[in-house]
């Protein structure tokens, strides 16, 4: 569509500045941790590789289950969270929601959506595929759809996601997934965990 003029970050910024509040141009109402989206978009383009890589990585984490159990999941939580925050923060702009959905969202982190939608794009996506709230950011969900089309299990994007459990923020999603997988494996083999 002919979006003739790209507005800076905040729609009708001048009108809002009149209210007296300090409103610098180009600042969006939602917190922005990155000003460029190059790395995030790279991750989406390489979603298939990242999917393969994560599958190996998850297996390795599960193999280490006895180690986590030895030290205690509670005690390894903090260092693992620290590592996870930085490892996922760089390529995905991870927001540490603690319940990672990257595999179901084409390796595009849904928590970067200003509305934090976890089930698909809202109706406000611009014709150029950018965000309604932050006009210069590519829509997280347009990217997610692209990324999911490259992935082997990309159809996971069709599943309805549960609402975010806010009490799990800033905790390690890796450890949770590993503990759940280990419990499921033990239940399947019939030995008690």
């Amino acid at each position: 569509m002919a979006d003739e003029r790209q507005k800076p970050g905040n729609a009708a910024a001048a009108a809002k500045a009149k209210t007296g509040a300090f409103t610098p141009a180009g600042v969006s109402p939602s917190r922005r941790s990155r000003h460029k989206y190059t790395v995030r978009l790279w991750a989406v383009r390489h979603s298939r590789f990242l999917e393969w890589f994560y599958a190996r990585f998850a297996d390795m984490f599960l193999m280490l289950h006895p180690v986590w159990k030895l030290f205690g999941y509670d005690r390894v939580e903090r260092p693992v969270t620290f590592v996870e925050r930085h490892v996922k923060g760089f390529p995905f702009d991870c927001r540490m929601c603690g319940q990672c959905a990257l595999s179901s969202t084409g390796m595009s982190c849904p928590m970067n959506c200003p509305k934090q939608l976890r089930n698909g794009p809202c109706g406000g996506v611009r014709a150029n595929g950018n965000c309604e709230v932050e006009p210069d950011m590519p829509c997280v969900w347009v990217q997610a759809w692209k990324g999911s089309r490259n992935m082997v299990k990309g159809d996971a994007i069709m599943a309805v996601q549960k609402p975010v459990n806010q009490s799990l923020r800033e905790t390690s999603s890796w450890l949770r997934v590993t503990a759940e997988a280990a419990a499921a494996r033990d239940a399947a083999t019939g030995k008690d965990a």
Partner: peptide
Amino acid sequence: QPGAKPVFDLDCMS
């Protein structure tokens, strides 16, 4: 009222 806090606790699907 652009200064309001956006909640978006659920999304339309959930």
